[in-house]
Every structure is written in C-alpha cells, then in structure tokens.
Design a protein around this nucleic acid. Structure first.
Lengths: 143, 143
DNA sequence: TCTTAAATATGACGAATATCATGTTTTTCG
DNA sequence: CGAAAAACATGATATTCGTCATATTTAAGA
C-alpha cells in the first residue's frame, strides 16, 4: 500500500516525535535500530524530509533531527507525498485516465468511498495527535 | 495501491468477462490494445491466471482466453493474491510484526476500518457482478 | 499426418526502487 | 583557529519489478 521508503519515513517521523526534542536531538544512525531500517537509507530520507520542512535538523556536534511545533502539525499524507510523489494515492485504482465519479471504473464504486475516507484521515490527523495516541497507550510503535 | 501487474491482470480479466466466451475466445495479442498493456506481458499474466483457474484457455488454432461460469464467480482479491501474493494487502501498513487489532500501530486506528471494508468488498463481489455493472452502464471499462 | 496457430515455459533484458559509499559543509568545543 | 561531529549532497551498486524474446507443447484443419 505504501512504498518501503514511505514506511521508513513515517516510522522515523513518529519515532522522532515521540523521543526527540530540541534539547534531545537524535542522529540518523541512532534511528536505524529502533525503526528497523538501514542507517544510510533513513539518513537520506530524513534529509529529504528536512528539505521539505517535515522535520527539523541541525548540523555539527550535538546535532541531529527532531520535530518542532510546526513539524508536529504536519500529517502522514504530507510524508507520503514528499517521498512517493503527489498522485500515487489519489489516482484511479486501475490507472484509467477517464475514470472519475461520473464515469467510474468497475472498482471505483467498490472501494471509492473507503479510499476517500483513508485519504481524509491521513490528511486530517497531525503527527502530534498520532503521538498522543501512543502516549496514551491507544497504539504502539515497535519495530 | 495495486501493482501494475495486478492492474493489467484485473483489466484483462474484466475485458475477457465482457467480450469473450467459449465461442468467441480472445488471444493475448488482441488484449494488448484495448487494455493498454504490452502484449507479451499480458500474455504472461494470463498464463499465470490460467494456471490458477482464474481464466480458461485453449491452445492451438482458434484458441485463446475466456471466462467460464466458474471463472465468473471469482473475485478481484483472488486476482491480486495470484499476481502480488497473499499478504500484500492484509499486512500492517507499516509492516510491523507486532501490530494487530489489540496492539494497533498508530496508523491502524486511522485507516483500519476502511482497509477492512476494501478487503471485504474486493472479496465479496464476483467478476460477474462487476461486469453486470458495466453492462448496465453503472461503470465503464476503457483503457 | 503434416502444417499452422495458438498457449505455455523459461529466461534475458531494462528500468525503477532500495541500499550503500564517499566527499563536502556546517557547527561546536577545546 | 583547528579538530571533530554531525547533516548534507551526490553518485555507485544491488535488488526487485516490469518488459521482451525464444523455444516448446498442444490442438485444429487440410
């Protein structure tokens, strides 16, 4: 459903949101183990996210990654769009150009409503809210 | 959401269901244009589907592919499982081993219900019903 | 029975994605 | 300042997935 890159990115962001802060930045190499992703790869992804202001970073000694209040207001859909591109999610299930709500493809009616629901939820829940959920024990974030 | 292979396969099956029959079989190379997929590739996919009894085929002159009544009772999920594998769809969104309804990952609560809905719909609608929808003008099947 | 037309089986090629490696820039600290 | 520690930038390699090509098998019809 998501690309592997997106999964790593999402896990990385959530982990940072949960465990990092301005006073306690986390380095790329220290993210590798807890989210179960190769270190150089997660580093590259975090840089891409930083370039798009999804995460904050500082260079040099005692540098690393963290999320500031602005970053915490971002949502999962934005991560996916940065990593996988805009329309990976929104396009027709069969990649039919002519497909839309007026001229739906056979699968459109079958799963269209759920798809819209998924998109809506991914867009309208902030990282902060997701992390609050973890803190309250309503969800978990292991490897 | 689906792999390109799955999309080709689904379009191929739907096209066959709509236009082919025992008396009027369709060859792989004649599927290429209408579903906008490379001929050798769709041939390979159809063979895989035939091996799993998702479509019917006969060799030799006047041979080709079509769907019999049994094939028409199959559903989209079965196509996806044959082409992409069993758990591509059912596994956790973040590929977390420990994630399940009791121990949900942060995304689980967010889209879990919709995901179950999608799976249910894909499993419980037959090819025949989808094609009936097209015949009635409720959906379309272009390139 | 021989030729031909189709699916089938297998593998080679290419492109996209995931992974790794190297060097450069920035910042802290002695 | 100068050295070290980190992100940053770029590109190289590997693996997966999509595409293509070739040879084999099966069945129809003359």
């Amino acid at each position: 459903m998501f690309s592997r890159s997106s999964k790593y990115a999402i896990k990385g962001v959530l982990y940072l949101a949960l465990h990092a802060s301005v006073e306690n930045k986390i380095q790329a190499k220290d993210l590798s183990a807890p989210i179960n992703a190769p270190a150089p790869y997660i580093a590259k992804l975090l840089q891409e996210l930083a370039r798009h202001n999804m995460v904050s970073s500082v260079k040099g000694p005692h540098g690393g990654f963290y999320l500031d209040e602005v970053n915490l207001q971002m949502n999962i859909m934005q991560i996916i769009e940065i990593i996988d591109g805009e329309d990976k999610f929104r396009s027709c299930l069969l990649s039919l150009e002519q497909c839309n709500s007026e001229n739906p493809c056979p699968l459109h009616n079958l799963v269209g409503d759920q798809k819209l629901g998924v998109i809506h939820n991914l867009e309208n829940t902030t990282i902060k809210e997701l992390v609050a959920d973890v803190k309250q024990g309503n969800s978990i974030l292991p490897l």
